[in-house]
């Protein structure tokens, strides 16, 4: 399975690490999670802020599409979100940056254990998969709205706008 180039580079980085080095690097990524939060004045095409049953705290995902169709994410995490999930937010914001929505939907989740390592993927740390689901979710909604909007335009001005 091939991964997007930026994510691939992160996977390659982790693949050479011992378990201890993986933990250390994950902590470093978790420390960067706050840097992925929206910057004052930034605008987004879509925002998805919610507290799901599957996660211990609120997660806000912000999506912006640039002029060439590349997606850029910002993520805000509530204080109860686990460290591993924080690390994954930084990894995914970097690893998926600039991909098209269609490319993001194609990213398989099987890279997670390659980065995290078998020892840390366990019962009670499964929320590590949650963020990718949320990021794909917001992209899917954006695509659906775009399609709906295109259809409305094709059908002419008499159709109700979405």
């Amino acid at each position: 399975m091939s991964y997007p180039p930026k994510l691939s580079a992160i996977i390659a980085l982790f693949s050479g690490f011992s378990d201890a080095e993986k933990r250390e690097t994950l902590i470093a990524y978790a420390d960067q999670a706050a840097a992925q939060e929206p910057i004052s004045g930034e605008t987004f095409d879509l925002e998805d802020i919610r507290k799901d049953q599957e996660c211990t705290d609120t997660v806000a995902v912000f999506l912006r599409l640039d002029s060439s169709g590349g997606a850029h994410f910002r993520i805000t995490l509530g204080p109860q979100v686990q460290t591993l999930t924080r690390a994954m937010s930084a990894i995914l914001c970097k690893g998926l940056d600039g991909l098209s929505p269609a490319e993001i939907l194609e990213v398989p989740a099987d890279f997670v254990p390659k980065i995290v390592g078998a020892e840390l993927v366990r019962l009670r740390s499964q929320t590590v998969y949650y963020l990718l689901t949320r990021m794909k979710g917001i992209v899917k909604v954006w695509l659906q709205r775009k399609r709906a909007s295109s259809l409305a335009l094709e059908d002419g001005p008499s159709q109700p706008s979405l």
Binding site: D31, Q82, T83
Partner: peptide, 22 residues
């Protein structure tokens, strides 16, 4: 902890980590 990496992010001075699973 439940959070597998929480100890490494900072803990009480002198505290050791015992992981429930490992």
């Amino acid at each position: 902890n439940e959070d597998v990496l929480l100890y490494e992010t900072g803990h009480l001075p002198g505290a050791v980590h015992i992981d429930w699973q490992r």
